[in-house]
């Protein structure tokens, strides 16, 4: 549905040339949600702006729904953009228009009749759950409500694809989840292909089918979300995955944590499970085999695609002479294990 072929974009800043994108190629199949993740300045904003030619690539090809956009005239491009929805981090609603008028805006641009606009706008506000806010101004809405208006506005033209430029980055976690659910719902119900960029792995994990990692203007890794979580190839990808798993040593433990074992302390282990880890009840196995006990201090386990992954802090006790063997056993099952201290 969306295809980028060898897209390169350079900017001229005074007398130096900055390469924002270099030789980026990707394909988003119809009906899928594709996420591009990267740190700020990696070129992801430029990438998504290139898809509807808000930025014109220096070289390469952009094909959306079978049409090569780079070859179109300005007028034809404006028409084609009506088929490509877009939402933004800062919503970009018109402050001089009410919610109703904001959603009506793209329909006015397309010359839709007044009565048709009315039914369509009310239908869209119903879809995003803001029917009762129709006559409010954006200034009186919360961030999540503003993004819902922006979604309704961009859906007004019945786009085939939807571009999301950090659409949840300015929202709190609960609102982020509700917007992501709405996007997933739109993707399923209206069969709209979605390309999104984000710096939050949670976004990728919760709604994307496929993901690409961008760094310094290059796509360094791409594949299905399950594959990437199962077997991340790049250090950056691993960092993104682990950043989506927040685990900290609780302060009670932090206070009594010792660097060295004085002979009667218990090791505190951090176990990291990735897609490579064996899908077996390893902990109880270790417990039985090595006559050891585990106390789970803190844990976060999650599912991305087919893959179960997560991180866990456990306090090990039992037969002291078997500790090393236990740790080795974890490692042999591809569970990355480290001793972070003794308690």
């Amino acid at each position: 549905m969306i295809e980028l072929k060898n897209v390169t974009k350079t900017f001229h800043q005074k007398d130096r040339v900055v390469t924002a994108l270099s030789d980026v190629s990707l394909r988003v199949p119809p009906g899928k949600i594709f996420g591009v993740i990267g740190t700020s300045g990696a070129g992801k904003s430029t990438l998504i702006r290139c898809v509807n030619l808000l930025e014109r690539p220096t070289s390469g090809e952009i094909i959306v729904d079978g049409k090569a956009l780079m070859q179109l005239s300005n007028a034809a491009l404006a028409l084609e953009r009506r088929e490509i929805g877009m939402i933004f981090q800062h919503f970009n609603l018109l402050s001089s228009r009410t919610v109703f008028e904001n959603v009506a805006f793209p329909l006015e641009l397309a010359g839709t009749s007044k009565s048709e606009i009315k039914t369509r706008v009310l239908e869209l506000l119903e879809l995003v759950g803001l029917a009762e806010k129709a006559n409010d101004y954006p200034a009186n809405l919360s961030g999540g409500q503003k993004q819902r208006v922006a979604i309704a506005r961009t859906l007004a033209n019945n786009p085939k694809v939807l571009l999301c430029d950090e659409a949840t980055s300015a929202l709190d976690p609960a609102t982020t989840r509700s917007i992501l659910n709405l996007l997933k719902d739109i993707n399923k119900r209206l069969n709209i292909t979605i390309l999104l960029i984000t710096h939050q792995m949670e976004v990728v994990k919760s709604i994307c089918d496929e993901v690409a990692v961008i760094s310094y203007g290059k796509l360094i890794e791409q594949g299905s979300v399950g594959e990437i979580f199962a077997d991340p190839k790049h250090e950056l990808t691993r960092e993104f995955i682990s950043s989506s798993l927040h685990i900290e040593v609780p302060s009670v433990y932090q206070e009594k944590l010792q660097k060295e074992d004085n002979g009667n302390l218990n090791p505190l282990l951090k176990l990291e499970m990735t897609g490579k880890s064996v899908n077996e009840p390893v902990i109880s196995e270790v417990s039985r085999l090595f006559d050891t006990d585990f106390k789970i201090v803190s844990a976060q386990m999650d599912q991305a695609g087919e893959v179960n992954f997560g991180v866990m802090l456990i306090e090990l006790s039992g037969k002291r002479e078997n500790y090393n063997a236990a740790i080795q056993y974890f490692n042999s099952k591809h569970i990355k294990t480290e001793i972070i201290g003794y308690v």
Binding site: L54, E80, R81, M86, N92, L93, L94, L109, A150
Partner: peptide
């Protein structure tokens, strides 16, 4: 961002002036 959003929604330069910039 307002101009960008209007362009993304398929507004022509003339529409951007009288439907976005001036209001």
């Amino acid at each position: 961002g307002l101009i960008e959003a209007a362009r993304a929604l398929g507004a022509t330069p003339f529409q951007i002036v009288y439907k976005v910039l001036l209001p």
